[in-house]
C-alpha cells in the first residue's frame, strides 16, 4: 500500500494545488474571504445602531396612542424584550443557513422580499454604471482633445453641475421636464420587464439618468484629468505622436487604453455611494427596489429586514469590487501575464 501510494502521488502534478495557487482563483478567494468579516461587522453594527436609535419597533408600529402595556406586549411577541446580542446571535445562526429571518412588520420572509426586489435595484445600478461609464468616455475624450476649448469648458461645466446638484433635485427637475412638461416619460412607477419591455424601459429612463448623472460627472472629470495628464507626461504618447499618429488616434488608441484602469478603479470605489443612491432614486420614482425597502425598514426599525438588505448590499459591493479586480486582470496585460508565469 505504502509504495503504491508513493508511486502514484510523487510524479503526478497536484491539480488541486495548481488550481488554488492560480492567481485568479486566489483573487476571487481572497475577496470572498474578506467579505465574511465585512458582513459580520456590517450586520452587527446595523443591529447595534438600530438598537441605539430612539423609539422601538413596537411603538413605531402601534402609533402615538399606544399604552405602555401594549408596547410591552408587542415587544414580547416580536422577541424585542431579549437583549440585542441574543437576537443578533439567533439571526446570525439562521442567516448561515440562508434564512435571513422574518420581517417584524409584516412577517414576510426577508429572503423572499429581497430576492423579489433585487433585480430592480441591480438593473438600476448596472444600467447607471454602464451609462455613466460610456458617457464619461465619450465626453472626457472629446474634452481632452482640446483642453480649455469651448467644448471642454461646456462639458466641464456640465460635470461640475453633476457633482454639485443633489440627486434628489436633479431627479425632480428631470420629472418636471420629461414627465410634467413634455409628457414623454412616466413620473413614477415601475413596469416589470415581463409585462412590457417598452414600459419597463420607459419607467427606467429617468431613474437611470438621475442615478448616473452624478457618477458620470465624477468619472468624466477624473477621466478627462487623467487623459490630459497622460497626454502631457507619458513617454509612450510621445512615441505614438512621433509615429505620426493623429490626435484622435493617440487619445483613443493609446491614452484611453491606459486611463481605463483608473476609471475601473473609480467605478469600484463609487459602488458604495451608488447603492446608497438607489434608496433616494427608488423613493422618488416609486421603484420597488431594495433601497426603498431599506428606508421603510429603517423607519419601522425592522431589524431583520434592514440586516437582510445590508447583507445583500455588502455582497453586491464585494462582487462589484471582485469584478473590478477580474476586469483588471483581463484588461491589463501586465497583470494577465504575471499571473501566467
Amino acid at each position: 500500500m505504502a509504495t503504491a501510494y508513493l508511486n502514484t502521488t510523487a510524479p503526478r502534478p497536484n491539480v488541486f494545488v495548481a488550481f488554488v495557487r492560480h492567481p485568479v482563483v486566489r483573487v476571487i478567494g481572497i475577496r470572498l474571504l474578506q467579505a465574511i468579516p465585512i458582513l459580520l461587522i456590517a450586520t452587527f453594527i446595523t443591529f447595534a445602531l438600530l438598537n441605539l436609535l430612539p423609539g422601538s419597533t413596537a411603538s413605531a408600529l402601534l402609533g402615538d396612542g399606544a399604552s405602555a402595556e401594549q408596547i410591552k406586549a408587542l415587544e414580547i411577541k416580536l422577541h424585542l424584550d431579549q437583549p440585542f446580542w441574543e437576537r443578533y446571535w439567533t439571526w446570525l445562526t439562521a442567516a448561515f443557513t440562508g434564512n435571513l429571518g422574518e420581517s417584524l412588520v409584516n412577517q414576510q420572509s426577508v429572503t423572499a422580499v429581497v430576492l423579489d426586489r433585487l433585480h430592480v435595484s441591480l438593473s438600476l445600478i448596472f444600467l447607471s454604471i454602464t451609462l455613466a461609464v460610456s458617457g464619461a468616455i465619450v465626453f472626457a475624450t472629446v474634452s481632452a482633445k482640446k483642453p480649455g476649448g469651448v467644448i471642454d469648458r461646456i462639458f466641464t461645466f456640465i460635470s461640475s453641475l453633476g457633482q454639485s446638484i443633489p440627486t434628489f433635485v436633479f431627479s425632480l427637475v428631470m420629472v418636471l421636464v420629461f414627465s410634467v412638461t413634455l409628457s414623454l416619460l412616466p413620473a413614477i412607477g415601475y413596469v416589470p420587464f415581463s409585462d412590457s419591455p417598452i414600459g419597463w424601459a420607459q419607467s427606467m429612463i429617468l431613474p437611470v439618468l438621475s442615478m448616473s448623472f452624478p457618477i458620470w460627472a465624477i468619472f468624466c472629470r477624473m477621466l478627462r484629468a487623467d487623459l490630459i495628464d497622460q497626454a502631457s507626461s507619458e513617454d509612450y504618447v510621445q512615441t505614438a505622436r512621433a509615429k505620426g499618429a493623429g490626435g484622435w488616434a493617440v487619445l483613443i488608441r493609446h491614452i484611453l487604453r491606459n486611463s481605463i484602469f483608473g476609471l475601473i478603479t473609480l467605478v469600484g470605489l463609487q459602488m458604495g455611494s451608488l447603492i446608497g443612491n438607489t434608496a433616494i432614486v427608488e423613493s422618488i420614482f416609486g421603484l420597488p427596489g431594495i433601497g426603498r425597502e431599506l428606508l421603510n425598514a429603517i423607519h419601522f426599525k425592522d431589524i431583520p429586514m434592514v440586516c437582510g438588505i445590508v447583507v445583500v448590499m455588502v455582497i453586491i459591493t464585494v462582487l462589484a469590487n471582485l469584478a473590478v479586480d477580474l476586469l483588471y486582470a483581463v484588461l491589463d496585460p501586465r497583470i494577465r501575464h504575471d499571473s501566467r508565469s
Partner: peptide, 16 residues
C-alpha cells in the same frame, strides 16, 4: 406609494 411629496405632485401633474 411614493417617497417624496414633490414626485407625488409630479405624478398627478403628469396625469399618471
Amino acid at each position: 406609494s411614493i417617497g417624496t411629496d414633490q414626485s407625488a405632485l409630479a405624478s398627478i401633474q403628469s396625469g399618471q
